[in-house]
Design a binder for these strands. Structure first.
Lengths: 226, 226
DNA sequence: TAAAGTTAACGTTTGTTAACGTTGATAATG
DNA sequence: CATTATCAACGTTAACAAACGTTAACTTTA
């Protein structure tokens, strides 16, 4: 199972396609580019991408039509439409043809990535218990290791326990006291200092994906986001 | 913060309604059942559901009519129509009345659930606290950052809380006292001074889009506009 | 006796307090 | 009636203390 997410991008404006492709590649997506609807559909059949981004207006075969044919074969792969028209009708049509989201041009890369991650997120995080995906790391609590791009980083027991607690409560604040009670079984001053040290250690070991952050909420606790 | 998703189901065929209700409940949805259009609309007003599933043909008030009235009050809640007729015309009408998707009877529960999840996923991402567009900034309350043109600006917890409150009440005045009570849990003189400081900090961090303004209404409170 | 975890020391960040400047509404004055 | 005085509300900056981050020395554990 490769960690890179494979994106099929169907876009006839080559300059735009290039920009999107490069932006996505810097974020560790693999991008397959079809220059028109037919080519895109061919690539879909051959490459089995994880997510599809379709321009609506394209030569040979429009985006809606591609989506319709894709859905005959695969009901799950997320589809995002890019549309220059802003009419509601288009948007509605997109959903009717099996799209999951749409973006009006012009759009920012941030927006596209957010939407993609949202659609992927629902599928992605269903990995099993002894492997947890976190950003573009894989975390194996039982083995006490973090894997990034096939490179293994060993974790100690305390590091593992702390990271697991943070991941189990991803995007939520965990009170300092709660962490201390669970992992150190003790909320005194020195345990607090110790926790700080381990937070530092984890931040260092997670530095290869900058989207992962362990955020401190002063006087409350910590929150892991990605 | 993952409370049950609340579904309003409007369906006059009681046997079918019961099947849908039970299926959804086993999947951890909470279901409110209206036996006709009027009852359904009443429930909508009282219960503020997360998603609405409307049979089109119902006594007293049909599904389209319910959708039309719902949309007067709430433009975001996803609406799915159930229709026995298979004409495209109906479908188009459904979208015209503000529906987001439709299912032809007979349909499988799997299909209904997939459609529901698809719509909920999208909405979650728009209204949910993950990403909020504000002017040409993107605000990520969970990550405590503001992004402008790919440039990241870190926010502290207080800054995040205050900005989120302002954005949630965009274009409306929030009373000083309300802000102080919610964020500082305290309305004394010093908290007031502290709030002033944070208003200044936010204004500075939002300076890259001059259309965004935090306006003071003397002796009342603040209003964020953009 | 290495490796893991804790303690200690010190640097950095965050939120509060304080001091003072600016603005706007109302009242007093010529 | 226009001008000025006054005062409270708000804005801005900086100083400060507490919380947190980081590094390294030290102690414990397997």
């Amino acid at each position: 199972m490769s960690t890179k997410i494979r994106v099929l991008l169907a876009e006839d404006e080559l300059a735009l396609a290039q920009i999107i492709k490069e932006s996505l590649e810097t974020r560790n997506f693999e991008v397959i580019h079809g220059k028109n609807g037919e080519e895109a559909f061919d690539f879909f059949l051959k490459e089995n991408p994880d997510i599809i981004v379709l321009d609506v207006m394209m030569p040979l075969k429009d985006g809606f039509s591609v989506a319709k044919d894709v859905r005959k074969i695969n009901k799950n792969v997320p589809i995002i439409f890019l549309t220059a028209k802003s009419q509601t009708l288009d948007v509605v049509d997109g959903f009717a043809f099996g799209g999951n989201d749409y973006l009006k041009k012009p759009f920012s890369m941030e927006e596209l990535i957010v939407r993609m991650q949202s659609l992927l997120g629902r599928i992605e995080n269903k990995t099993n218990d002894d492997t947890i995906a976190i950003g573009n790391y894989l975390f194996y609590p039982i083995k006490q290791i973090l894997v990034h791009n096939y490179k293994i980083e060993n974790l100690t027991h305390r590091e593992t326990a702390l990271l697991q607690l943070l991941i189990e409560n991803k995007n939520e604040i965990i009170d300092r006291e709660v962490i201390l009670k669970i992992i150190w079984n003790n909320t005194d001053f020195f345990s607090g200092r110790s926790m700080d040290v381990f937070i530092t250690k984890l931040r260092k070991k997670l530095i290869l994906d900058t989207t992962i952050q362990i955020i401190n909420i002063r006087s409350k606790g910590y929150k892991l986001t990605c």
